[in-house]
C-alpha cells in the first residue's frame, strides 16, 4: 500500500545524502574550472572554434557525470550495506524492491540536478564564446536544441550506467569491485561498436577466427552500447540528428536500465546480509 511513498522517501533521503557529499562540490568546481579553460582553450585553434568549445563543454558534462556515478553513486548504495544501516530501513516495512527503486530514483535525481548545474555552466561558457568571442566560427547548422539533446542523451547514458552499477553492487557487495566492473563495462560499452566494426569489416584489417566473431557479436548484444547516446559530434558540428535514432536510443536505454534493475532486484531479494 505504501509502495510509492516509501520509494519517494527513500529517494529524497538518497538525494539529500548525495548533496551532502563533498565530492559533489568537487564536480561543480571541475565544471567551473573547465568553463574558464574553455574560454582560453579556443585560442589554440584556427577556424573550428565553436566545435572546440562545444567539445569541451559537453565532455565536461560527461566526465562530471561519470565521476558522479562511479565515485559517489555506487558509494551511496554500498554505504548502507557496509554500515549495516540497511537493516534499519528494511525493518520499517520497506521491501527490498522499494529500497532498490528508492535508491535508484534518488541517485537519478542527484545525477539530473548535478548534470543540470554542470550543463548550465558549460552552456554559459559556450554562450559567452558564441556571443562575444567567436560567433562566426560556429558551424552553420549549430543549434542549442542539439546541444540540449546531447546533454539529455548523456543523462540517459548515465542512467543506464547507474543501473549497471546497481546490478554489480548487489552482486558483489564490495563497492570497489563494483566500481571496477562498472568502469570496465563502461569502457567495453563505449569501444565495442568499433571492435565489432573492425572484426566484421568486409575488408579484413584484423585476422579473427569465426568463433571470436560470434563471441564479439554476442557480446555486442549483451553489453550496453553507450556510444548510441553520444551526440557530442552532432552538437559540435551542427549535424542533423535523426529523431528515430533518439527514440530508439532512449528506448534502448530505458529497457537496459529496467532489465538491470530487475536483475539487481532478483539478486538483492536473495541476498543475505551478515
Amino acid at each position: 500500500m505504501n509502495r510509492i511513498p516509501n520509494i519517494y522517501h527513500l529517494a529524497v533521503i538518497t538525494f539529500k545524502e548525495g548533496i551532502r557529499n563533498r565530492a559533489l562540490i568537487g564536480v561543480f568546481i571541475i565544471s567551473l574550472v573547465m568553463m574558464v579553460i574553455n574560454v582560453t582553450f579556443i585560442n589554440f585553434f584556427m577556424r573550428d572554434l565553436g566545435k572546440v568549445s562545444v567539445d569541451l563543454g559537453l565532455s565536461t558534462v560527461s566526465l562530471a557525470g561519470l565521476i558522479l556515478v562511479l565515485f559517489i553513486g555506487l558509494n551511496l548504495i554500498s554505504k548502507d550495506l557496509d554500515k549495516k544501516t540497511i537493516f534499519l530501513i528494511l525493518s520499517r516495512s520497506v521491501s527490498r524492491t522499494q529500497y532498490l527503486l528508492g535508491k535508484f530514483a534518488g541517485l537519478m535525481g542527484l545525477i539530473i540536478v548535478s548534470m543540470a548545474i554542470v550543463g548550465l555552466v558549460s552552456f554559459l561558457s559556450v554562450l559567452v564564446i558564441k556571443s562575444f568571442l567567436a560567433g562566426v566560427f560556429f558551424a552553420k547548422g549549430f543549434s542549442w536544441w542539439t546541444y540540449f539533446l546531447a546533454w539529455a542523451m548523456s543523462v540517459v547514458s548515465l542512467m543506464t550506467l547507474t543501473a549497471v552499477g546497481f546490478l554489480f553492487c548487489t552482486l558483489t557487495s564490495h563497492v570497489f569491485v563494483a566500481m571496477v566492473i562498472t568502469s570496465l563495462v563502461y569502457l567495453i560499452g563505449q569501444s565495442l561498436p568499433h571492435i565489432q566494426e573492425l572484426v566484421l569489416a568486409r575488408q579484413q584489417v584484423l585476422k579473427v577466427s569465426d568463433a571470436m566473431k560470434v563471441f564479439i557479436q554476442i557480446l555486442y548484444y549483451i553489453m550496453p552500447n553507450f556510444s548510441l547516446f553520444d551526440l557530442k559530434l552532432q552538437a559540435a558540428h551542427g549535424l542533423p540528428v535523426d529523431p528515430g535514432h533518439i527514440f530508439w536510443a532512449v528506448l534502448y536505454g530505458l529497457v537496459y536500465t529496467t532489465v538491470c534493475l530487475w536483475l539487481a532486484d532478483l539478486v538483492f531479494k536473495k541476498k543475505e546480509f551478515v
Binding site: 565532455s59 556510444s227 557530442k232 559530434l233
Partner: peptide
C-alpha cells in the same frame, strides 16, 4: 584504430588534443 578504441565518448576532445600536437 587504437585511437578510435580509446576515444570512448570523447572523440571531439581527443581530436582537439591531437591537433594541438600537430600545431
Amino acid at each position: 584504430n587504437f585511437l578510435k578504441l580509446i576515444r570512448l565518448e570523447f572523440s571531439g576532445l581527443l581530436s582537439d588534443f591531437i591537433f594541438i600536437q600537430a600545431q
